[in-house]
């Protein structure tokens, strides 16, 4: 068990990430990937806020862990995490998708400090993660690679090529996390492609599988620890999540995959997230007020 201060710190970061996501999308007619960014925000917060071995002042530190957002359309969640942990000023988040910005619509490793690989064409990131894990093993480095995949992204055949590669090469320094938010761009995953049963698929491909609630920080951290104990095979977390999590009107609504916010929606979202942030204050005893 992590102490409650750690959990609280991660939850605060997750709420800040969600708030940053909303502010990056704004309410002036710009679209943004709200749904899939918010569904994975707790996972991203658990990684950047606690689990990842990284140094925001030295993004190329050779002993770092790697984070690959294979579902690159959720980049704004990563930008928020990078800014909130000190890779670049939080103010810079406002420039996202502006001409000349370091913050592109999808992750660009040449432009954004802390982005490890370009993703956006779905299905590539797990293979890229495998390559990094192989290189780290060749160099006898102890870091790990964490790769977040969308459940819609499991439609891509290359994911399953990479799943075979990781198992064949026994990449126990790799953790894949499926953001199982049940919705893809235009509707429910279940009505588009046969991705179920997901856990059985990964198991049969030779992976250690952990199923968990992707919004339960303790469960996420426990799953990372369990992955550390597994040797000789890669681990995948099937993280059950809610698309649009944390923003009431966007939860489980496919149209917020890449949608706009009205002025009213924008303000409701910020109010809800402010309320969440206010609730997440530590008490003298270290107990959380929230819940």
């Amino acid at each position: 068990m992590q102490n409650s201060e750690t959990i609280l710190k991660i939850r605060r970061l997750a709420a800040k990430i969600r708030k940053d996501i909303v502010m990056m999308i704004g309410c002036e007619g710009q679209t943004g990937h709200l749904g899939g960014s918010c569904s994975s925000a707790d996972i991203v917060a658990a990684l950047y806020g606690h689990r990842l071995r990284h140094d925001p002042r030295n993004p190329k530190w050779e002993e770092r862990d790697r984070f690959i957002y294979s579902k690159g359309h959720a980049a704004i969640a990563q930008y928020a995490a990078l800014a909130e942990t000190g890779y670049f000023p939080v103010e810079e988040l406002k420039t996202v998708k502006s001409l000349g910005s370091r913050l592109q619509g999808h992750p660009d490793m040449l432009k954004t400090p802390g982005v490890e690989a370009g993703t956006g064409s779905l299905g590539h990131g797990l293979s890229v993660s495998n390559g990094m894990a192989l290189a780290m093993r060749l160099d006898a480095r102890t870091g790990k690679v964490f790769c977040v995949i969308g459940d819609g992204e499991l439609n891509e055949g290359q994911i399953w090529e990479a799943a075979m590669t990781a198992a064949y090469y026994k990449l126990d320094n790799l953790v894949a996390i499926v953001d199982r938010n049940h919705l893809q761009a235009t509707g429910p995953c279940a009505e588009r492609f046969g991705i179920d049963p997901i856990a059985e698929k990964w198991r049969s491909f030779g992976w250690h599988v952990i199923e968990l609630d992707g919004h339960d920080i303790q469960a996420i951290l426990d799953a990372f620890n369990e992955a550390d104990s597994i040797s000789g095979k890669p681990t995948v977390l099937i993280a059950d999540t809610v698309k649009g999590k944390g923003i009431s009107f966007a939860e489980n609504v496919a149209s917020f995959h890449n949608g706009m916010l009205t002025k009213e929606q924008y303000e409701i979202a910020l109010q809800e997230l402010d309320k969440e942030l206010e609730s997440l204050v530590s008490t003298e005893s270290g107990e959380m007020k929230h819940e």
Partner: peptide
């Protein structure tokens, strides 16, 4: 690294190896 009959995975894996200095 024998990458099997999976050229797409091969190239992306190479990208990861290159990103890590190989």
């Amino acid at each position: 690294f024998e990458m099997g009959i999976a050229e797409q995975d091969m190239v992306s894996t190479a990208a990861g190896l290159a990103a890590a200095g190989k």
